[in-house]
Computed example of a mutant assay.
Amino acid sequence: MKRPLYLLVTLLLIASGTLYGQKDSSAKARGALVLTYVKRPVLPPTEGDPTAEAADELYLLYIIGNQAAATLQRDAVVRDSILYPSGSDACLTDLSTGSYMRRDESTILGGPYLITGCRKYKWDLTDETKVIGGMNCSKVRPTDREKPVLWIADDLPVSAGPVGLTGLPGAVVSMRWGDHTYSLRGVTTDPGISGIAFTKEGKPCTEEQYEAIVDEILGPLLENGGSMEIGGGTIRIVQ
């Protein structure tokens, strides 16, 4: 996204009262903001791998009031101005608390599951900066945590990020989570979405319970020196 476009987006955000993290002084409901990312596998597909057909996909992050919903573009269904995110990448986040609910459809794990957790990190700015897509960006990492490390736009005040991240000091421009990277492609203001309806279908569990299920079912597959990466609804066994 070139600098002139970024400036235009910022002006549009101010005009429509969608600078999230700030209170809107008008009685009019705030419009929605959509960040579009390219979701890309870190590891190249290999022959015989069930994820071999995986390729770059568009990943959407909707922000409406104090809610953020993430879904792949192909799984974003809009009816009567209501967003219905679906698929294993669907995630609904409460920006005020950092709590989230995400869906995982992995049949190998006995899904679908509705997984709850909280990712309201505190973030530390590093001394590293660079220009990405015409935007000045800073490298940040969560306080007292090893991951994720990501790049944020210094002047785009969006507190939500992909995969349910909250409390950010700016919009995520580039990050890695699990075995995928997320790169900001563009920003859309006022897309005509007034609400989010998240699925209630799936077995409820916490993130910790889900990790225990993963260990129980996939643990035997890793006994021969393999490793496992989980992210964005994808599980990859690497020998």
Rank of each mutant, 00 (worst) to 15 (best):
L150Y: 05
P85M: 09
R185W: 09
P50A: 10
V77L: 14
L109E: 00
Y100E: 02
E207Q: 08
D104T: 02
E105M: 03
Y210A: 00
T97R: 03
V163Q: 04
G170F: 05
T234L: 12
L221S: 10
V238Q: 13
P169N: 15
E211W: 11
R74K: 13
I213Y: 00
R79Q: 13
D75T: 06
Y20A: 07
Y37W: 08
P191I: 03
S81R: 14
E128D: 14
P50F: 05
G192T: 05
C118D: 12
Y62H: 06
R119Y: 13
A153W: 01
Y121V: 08
L114G: 00
S88Q: 08
W151M: 10
S183H: 12
I235N: 00
T181D: 11
A29T: 08
G65K: 04
L8P: 02
A68T: 04
R30S: 06
L222E: 06
S99D: 10
L43G: 13
G178S: 12
K147M: 14
P4S: 13
R119S: 09
V173M: 10
S81L: 12
R185E: 11
L218N: 02
G98W: 01
V140H: 03
I237A: 05
R79V: 12
D94L: 05
T129W: 14
G178F: 05
D104W: 00
R74P: 02
L114W: 01
W123S: 09
A212Q: 13
I152A: 02
T166A: 12
R30E: 04
D127C: 09
Y6D: 09
T97P: 00
D49C: 07
Y121L: 12
L35D: 01
S174T: 13
G233Q: 03
K28D: 12
R185I: 09
